[in-house]
Amino acid sequence: MTTYFVTRHPGAVEWAARQGLAVDAVIAHLDPDEIQSGDVVIGTLPIHLVAQVCARGGRYYNLSLDVSLDARGRELSADDLIRYGARLEEYHVARV
């Protein structure tokens, strides 16, 4: 079982470390074909990729936050993520 954190953002990596989140690999891009049953994927992924993770037996945790309009489109620090209520929420998605 492998835990992947999919992000290109240094603030998110620092946030995860502050939370004591144990990950095996921080990656910028996810290839869903590499996911095996029992793997955990953390990030903010497009819905079709989440569905592929779930179909392969993986678990998906979305890095959710309530970002203000003025903060959208800019790089967020770990402190920003905390301020915007960053949290992990598990989702199971299936294509119908």
Results as ranks from 00 to 15, higher is better:
2 T>E: 01
27 I>V: 12
26 V>Q: 00
91 Y>N: 01
38 G>S: 07
35 I>V: 15
7 T>L: 05
32 P>L: 05
93 V>S: 04
22 A>P: 03
4 Y>T: 04
24 D>F: 01
15 W>L: 01
66 D>P: 03
39 D>E: 03
13 V>R: 11
91 Y>H: 12
85 G>H: 06
51 A>E: 02
87 R>T: 08
92 H>P: 02
17 A>T: 15
62 N>G: 12
87 R>I: 02
67 V>M: 11
76 L>D: 03
63 L>E: 04
47 I>N: 10
13 V>D: 04
8 R>Y: 03
35 I>E: 00
20 G>H: 09
66 D>L: 08
85 G>M: 11
64 S>C: 08
44 T>E: 05
87 R>W: 02
28 A>N: 11
60 Y>C: 10
94 A>F: 07
29 H>D: 14
84 Y>V: 05
85 G>T: 02
57 G>F: 14
60 Y>T: 14
55 A>C: 00
62 N>R: 13
54 C>T: 15
2 T>N: 07
9 H>Y: 11
44 T>M: 06
19 Q>A: 11
77 S>A: 10
22 A>K: 13
33 D>K: 06
86 A>G: 15
53 V>Q: 03
79 D>H: 07
47 I>G: 04
68 S>I: 09
38 G>T: 07
43 G>R: 00
5 F>E: 01
58 G>S: 09
79 D>E: 15
54 C>M: 04
77 S>E: 05
59 R>G: 10
63 L>P: 00
3 T>A: 02
57 G>P: 07
23 V>R: 02
67 V>I: 14
55 A>F: 01
57 G>L: 10
90 E>N: 06
96 V>Q: 07
31 D>K: 10
68 S>C: 09
29 H>S: 14
33 D>N: 07
40 V>Y: 08
55 A>M: 00
89 E>W: 05
9 H>D: 13
43 G>C: 09
